[in-house]
C-alpha cells in the first residue's frame, strides 16, 4: 500500500517534537478523518532555521509531515510558501489516492505557520 520511502519516513520520522522557543506555530487538520498536524518554526532573517512537527494520523500523515520538514529546512519563507501538498507527495514517490486528500496536509500546516508569523503572531486563532 505504501512505497519504501513512505515507510522509511514513517519508521524514522525527521524533526519530531516541539520547539519551545518557536517563532511561529501552524496547525492543520482533517475533520473527516481526524488527522491533526502541528508545525513549529524557528525563523531567522526570513529563513526557516529550524522546524519540528507533531502529527496525529495514519502512516501517510506522519511520512508527509516528516518529508515536508526535510524539504523546507533552510528555505526562505517565500520559497517555503511555494511548496504544496502535492510536492510533498511527489517527493515521497507518491501516496495512495485516498491519502492525497485526507492525510497529506503538512504543507498547509506550514503555510498556516508562516501566515501566523507574517501576522506578527506565534499562534493562529485555533492554537
Amino acid at each position: 500500500m505504501y512505497n519504501e520511502k513512505v515507510v522509511e519516513h514513517f519508521c524514522n520520522p525527521r524533526n519530531v517534537g516541539e520547539l519551545l522557543e518557536a517563532d511561529a506555530i501552524g496547525e492543520n487538520g482533517s475533520f473527516k478523518c481526524g488527522d491533526t498536524m502541528k508545525i513549529y518554526l524557528k525563523i531567522k532573517d526570513d529563513r526557516i532555521e529550524d522546524i519540528r512537527f507533531q502529527t496525529y494520523g495514519c502512516g501517510a500523515a506522519i511520512a508527509s509531515s516528516s518529508m515536508l520538514t526535510e524539504m523546507v529546512k533552510g528555505l526562505t519563507i517565500d520559497d517555503a510558501l511555494k511548496i504544496t501538498n502535492q510536492d510533498v507527495a511527489d517527493q515521497l514517490g507518491g501516496l495512495p489516492p485516498l491519502k492525497l486528500h485526507c492525510s497529506n496536509l503538512a504543507a498547509d500546516a506550514l503555510h498556516n505557520a508562516i501566515e501566523n508569523f507574517r501576522n506578527g503572531k506565534v499562534h493562529g486563532e485555533s492554537a
Binding site: F10, C11, D35, Y56, G59, A61
Partner: peptide, 11 residues
C-alpha cells in the same frame, strides 16, 4: 488514545 489505528497497524 492519541494515536491513529492505521499507524499502529503499519508499525
Amino acid at each position: 488514545k492519541h494515536v491513529e489505528g492505521e499507524a499502529v497497524l503499519l508499525s
